[in-house]
Design a protein around this nucleic acid. Sequence first.
DNA 1: TAAAACTATAAAGCTACTATAAGGTCAATA
DNA 2: TATTGACCTTATAGTAGCTTTATAGTTTTA
Lengths: 135, 135
Amino acid sequence: MRIGQLAQLVGVETQTIRFYEQQGLLPPPDRQDNGYRVYTEKYGEGLAFIRRCRILGLSLAEIHELQSYQDDPHQPCTAVNALLDDHISHVRSQITALQALEKQLVSLRASCNDDREVEACGVLAGISEGNMHQQ
Amino acid sequence: MRIGQLAQLVGVETQTIRFYEQQGLLPPPDRQDNGYRVYTEKYGEGLAFIRRCRILGLSLAEIHELQSYQDDPHQPCTAVNALLDDHISHVRSQITALQALEKQLVSLRASCNDDREVEACGVLAGISEGNMHQQ
DNA sequence: TAAAACTATAAAGCTACTATAAGGTCAATA
DNA sequence: TATTGACCTTATAGTAGCTTTATAGTTTTA
C-alpha cells in the first residue's frame, strides 16, 4: 500500500502522514526501490489512533506520551488516566471561559442597534471604555 | 513616555507593542534622536482598545476592521454589529463543540480505573477501537 | 567607571498542519 | 514513441499571535 491509498483509507492528507512520520509519531515505513513509502494495514491502525486522539483534542505531545505508555504495557495505567483527567479539566476550563466571554459579548452587543452611526456605536464605545471587568 | 513605560501601563510586553506596530494595528510613533520610540498617553488608548478586543477573542484582522470603521465615524454602525454577531455565533459553536467533546472524554474516562495495566486500559482501548461516533 | 536596565532590529520558535515548488516515477494513451 | 496525467519525492514557506533569542547600542544606577 502506498501513501495515497493509506491516506484515503484513514481520511487524511498524504502530507499529514509524512508530517507525523517526521515528528516521530509514526515509524519510518519501508521503501520501494524507487523511494516510495510502502505501508502495511497494521500501520494504518497507528495512524487512526493518532487521528482519534487529535479529534479528542489531544496535542501531538500528549499523543506521544500515550504512545510511550503503550510501549510498556505492563505498567499501571494511572498515567493514562491522569493525562485524560488533565485534558478533561482543560476542556472544562475552556468551556467556562467561553461561556463568560459569550455573556460579555452578548451584553456588549445589546448596547447598540443598527440605527446609529459609528461615532455613537454602543459596541465600539463599550470596548473603548473598557468596562470589561463587569464580568 | 518610552516603550517600557507604555507596556507597563497597559500590561503588555514591549515586543507585543512593536508587533502591533509592525502589523499596522498601531501607527509608528515618534522617535527620539537615539531611535527610541516615544509615546503620548493617547497612544495608550489605542493599544488598550486592541488588548480589550483580544480579550474578547477578536482576531487581529477583525480588530483592523473595527479600526477602519472608526476612521469613518459617520457611516451607520451596522457592520460593527454584524462583526460582533458573527463573533458571538462563532463563540457559541465553539462552546457547543467543546461540550460534546467533554461528554466524549468523560465517557472514555469512565471506561477505566487506575487499577489496570496499560495493556488493559479502557481509555487506550477506547481510543484504539475507535467507537467515537457514539456521540 | 562599570554593571544593570533599557532600547533597537532581525530572525527563529511555537502548534498542527497546509500549500507551494521543483522534480522523479509509472501506466495509459495518441 | 512521445506525452499526458496521476502519483510519488524532498524542501521550504505560510497560517495566528505572539514569544524567544541573538546581537548590539543607550541610558541609568551603584
